Computed example of a mutant assay.
Amino acid sequence: MSSSAAMAVDSSSWSSALVKISPYTFSAIGIAVAIGVSVLGAAWGIYITGSSLIGAAIKAPRITSKNLISVIFCEAVAIYGVIVAIILQTKLESVPPSKVYSPDSLRAGYAIFASGIIVGFANLVCGVCVGIIGSSCALADAQNSSLFVKILVIEIFGSALGLFGVIVGIIMSAQAVFAPK
């Protein structure tokens, strides 16, 4: 068997394997990634912000209460994932067994999967971004309190990245309509 014939067999086996996986499995993985990776991003951001906040509060205890807003921004990232997971969950519809692998059902499963991946990883990066900026905000505020609002504005722009991921995920999931009964 030539190498090109072997590659054709391999590529067709991959495509046939993907088509044989239930669209409900793809949907469940997408929903799990949306919420799980978003929470991971929030936790990572809180870790980055919190450790710097506690360290900077040793020098300037006055910064602790107002810099908690950075932790709240990180927590919003997890909430974005929960909201999208709920939206994606409502897209799931029961179809007869004969229509589970129809093109409409497969497209719906792939759309929910892709939406969950996009939202999860957008929120992961957003959580890290907000965490790093929140850390910088705490350290800068400990040195010079006039910098707090200026850096907080930058943190708001970083938080918008998660909202962009949510919007793209909702747009992508609009195509998720399982086969009619």
Rank of each mutant, 00 (worst) to 15 (best):
S115Y: 08
R107I: 12
L92A: 11
C126L: 07
I132Q: 10
N123R: 03
P97Q: 10
Q143M: 12
C126G: 07
E155G: 06
I117L: 13
F113T: 02
G109V: 04
F148I: 04
A140G: 06
S98N: 12
P103N: 09
G116E: 03
Y101D: 09
V130D: 03
C129A: 14
I133R: 01
S159R: 05
G131M: 08
A111Y: 04
C126V: 07
S159P: 02
C129S: 13
L106M: 15
Y110C: 07
S135C: 12
G158Y: 02
Q143A: 15
P103A: 09
I132G: 06
Q143L: 13
I156D: 02
V130C: 11
V149Y: 12
D141V: 01
A108N: 04
V95G: 05
S159G: 15
I112Y: 00
A122D: 05
A108H: 05
S136W: 00
V128M: 14
A122H: 03
G158P: 02
S94H: 11
L139I: 14
I154T: 09
P103V: 10
I156N: 02
S146D: 14
S98K: 11
A140K: 07
A138V: 05
I112W: 00
A114S: 15
L124P: 00
L139T: 14
G158H: 03
V149L: 14
I154D: 00
A140W: 00
K150L: 14
A108V: 06
F113Y: 10
S102T: 12
P96W: 08
L92W: 06
I156V: 14
L124K: 02
S159Y: 12
N123D: 13
V125G: 10
S145A: 09
L92N: 08
Y110D: 05
S135I: 06
L106G: 05
V149A: 13
L139R: 15
N123T: 04
K99A: 15
A140F: 03
G134V: 07
L124S: 01
A138N: 04
S102Q: 09
C126N: 12
I117D: 00
G134L: 06
F121G: 02
I117K: 00
S145D: 11
